[in-house]
Amino acid sequence: MDKQYDVIIVGAGPTGMTAAIYTGRARLKTLLIERMTPGGQIATTSTVENYPGFTQGIEGPDLSEAMETQTKRFGAEMLSSEVHGVSLDGLDRVVHTDDGDVTARALIVTSGAEHARLGVPGELEYMGKGVSNCAVCDAAFFVDSPVAVVGGGDAALDEGLFLTRYASKVTLIHRRDQLRAGKILQERAFAEPKMEFQWDTVVERINGNGVVSSLSLKNAKTGAPSSLEVEGVFIYIGLTPNSNFLQGLLPMDNAGHILVNAWMETAVPGIFAAGDIRQQAARQVVSAAGDGATAALAVRRYLQELRAKAGE
């Protein structure tokens, strides 16, 4: 690994990999840093049906592997490491990783988001013992068992529908009285005999004895308590941006999304943010890829301007 690059990209989800394809093709010396393995959220998604070009949909892991292959083809270097901070040194943007510092004139932050937690008793205790964020991984351990899904967005319905292939019953618990998910998913969910819905309901506690056995629930409107026997609970209540390592450097909203303009420029020149990490992202694979392309083109322009100034 060299120490000096034209552009460093932090996070190898669809946004970061698309950006790296573009900067690679622009012959910019590119380093793509990822703490796990490339793919981001799609690596653990079942079927992606709304990414254009795949008429029958494509499995999330297959799509992420294809993106990885394409990224490497255009010369981006990959580093498996965790980033714990970024600092400025004149025009250089210095990225502090577990494997030492690396420097570039431009930085694209595409560190994405991860599943938000409920923050209720039992959630961490029973993680892997009935509590899960990945229906695709764990559904097969709940054959003929009752399970619950918490949330009302696309992910909750998508994974809930996936669970109906295995579980005896899937109860969707949502704190409102209507779903946020896309209509086609709602139609499928309402038509699925194994799916049941508990509206205006919040989870107060996950109970068990070694493994999950029930949920303590509360009606959000009336406050009335109830209980639901389940062996598994799958939590899809939204996403938390992975932006802690940039606190104090870049302006963010209260939730931790980085503020950018239409060219994905942050308040700091030479630092760009794209995909789920930025404020007002559409949070789709296709928009993530689009963000990555936009940021890469903005980087190219930024570096050209820097060179032009240096040449004056």
């Binding site: 796990m36 393995t37 690596a43 998604t45 999330g60 990945c134 991984c137 097969a140």
Partner: peptide
């Protein structure tokens, strides 16, 4: 069938 297993 476990996608994260493939990634791990």
């Amino acid at each position: 069938w476990c996608a994260p297993c493939r990634r791990l």
